[in-house]
Every structure is written in structure tokens, then in C-alpha cells.
Amino acid sequence: MPRETGRKVIAQNKRARHDYHIDDTFEAGLVLQGTEVKSLRLGRASLADGYATVKDGEVWLINIHIPEYTMGTWTNHAARRTRKLLLHRKEIDKLTAKTKEGGLTLVPLSLYFKDGKAKVELGLARGKKDWDKRQTLAEKQAKREMARELRHRNR
């Protein structure tokens, strides 16, 4: 069987881009159990309430929902267990400094397979205020209306 190549997206956290300003992004590997990988290969995961934290020099992914593998036995995994992330030491040190700075948090943006390995894209995020969210929504709506008018004129 040939090796997998490319990027296959499993789950995206669209809500994160709405609720936060993303300052920087990092790609991290995941430490997973066998049934978690099988469940992910079926495309089942939710990043909705998840976040990452740095504890004792390691980065942990908390509250990500990977449902139990249906064909699994008593060795099945817990759906919302804390999972360790794999990053280089320099990246962990940078994340530690930034999150201690205040006002910044680590949010998972997407979960995907890259060349057969499970990866998560983390965003270093700063929370948006309500008026920021309304302004972003208004800009998006204005762009959509302009595009609609251009399509209508070009007919």
C-alpha cells in the first residue's frame, strides 16, 4: 500500500477565527492512541471547545472531542481526554513567553493528516470585543455585496 501524501483536513474551528484575532500559527504533532487515529481517519472530531496550555515545559491539548471508535473494544479511548502536543523546544519556549504575557491564548484552528501523520494547527489568539466582531461581519457583508454587484454588471 502506498504512503499517504498531501493534507487531508479532518476538522476546522471556524468559530475561533470569528472570536479571536489570530496573531501567529504553529503546527504541532499529536500523541494519540490507536483507536483515536482510526476515529480520525473516519473524519470524526470536534475542535469547538478546545484550547491548549503549556504546563511543565510541555504543551497539552484540552477538551478536543474525538468520539470513540465504533469497532473498538475495551481498549477504546476517552472522548475528551487531554492530549500531548509535539513541538520543538524553541517553539514551546516562545509559546510560554507569549501566553504569560497576558491576553493571549492557544486555540486549535484545524486538525488534519499531513503525509499520514495527525497534526493540529494552533493559533496564538487575542480575544475580540463585540464591536470587533460586528465590524468584521459588516466588512465581510460589504465585500459580498460588491462581488454580487460586479457579477450582475458583467452579465
Rank of each mutant, 00 (worst) to 15 (best):
D23F: 03
E68Y: 01
E101P: 01
A125S: 14
E68N: 06
A78M: 04
V54S: 03
K55F: 03
E58F: 01
L104A: 03
D49E: 13
D19K: 06
G102S: 12
E27N: 09
T53E: 14
V120D: 11
T82G: 02
L106V: 02
L104S: 05
K128T: 07
I62N: 13
A28F: 08
A52S: 13
D130C: 00
W74F: 03
K84E: 11
G103M: 11
D132I: 09
G50Y: 06
N63Y: 07
D23P: 00
L95D: 02
K84Y: 04
G29D: 06
L32A: 08
D93G: 05
K114E: 14
A45S: 05
L104C: 03
A45Q: 05
G102P: 10
K133T: 03
K119D: 05
E68I: 08
I64N: 04
L40N: 11
I64M: 13
L30E: 14
L47P: 07
R44K: 14
Y69E: 14
S46Y: 07
A52W: 00
D23R: 14
G50V: 00
K129T: 14
H18Q: 14
K128S: 07
L124S: 11
L109V: 05
K94A: 08
L40F: 11
L106F: 00
K129R: 15
L40D: 14
S110R: 15
T73Y: 14
E121F: 01
H65G: 00
S46M: 04
G50P: 02
H77F: 11
G72Q: 11
L109W: 10
G127A: 15
L32S: 09
G34H: 08
A97C: 01
G34F: 08
G123E: 09
T99S: 02
T35Q: 13
R17W: 01
V37S: 07
H88P: 13
R17I: 00
K100M: 10
A79Q: 10
G127D: 01
G127L: 07
W74L: 06
I22E: 07
E36N: 09
G116Q: 08
R17T: 01
E68K: 15
D115Q: 15
K98I: 09
G103N: 15
P108W: 04
R17M: 10
G127I: 13
H88F: 07
K38G: 10
R41W: 11
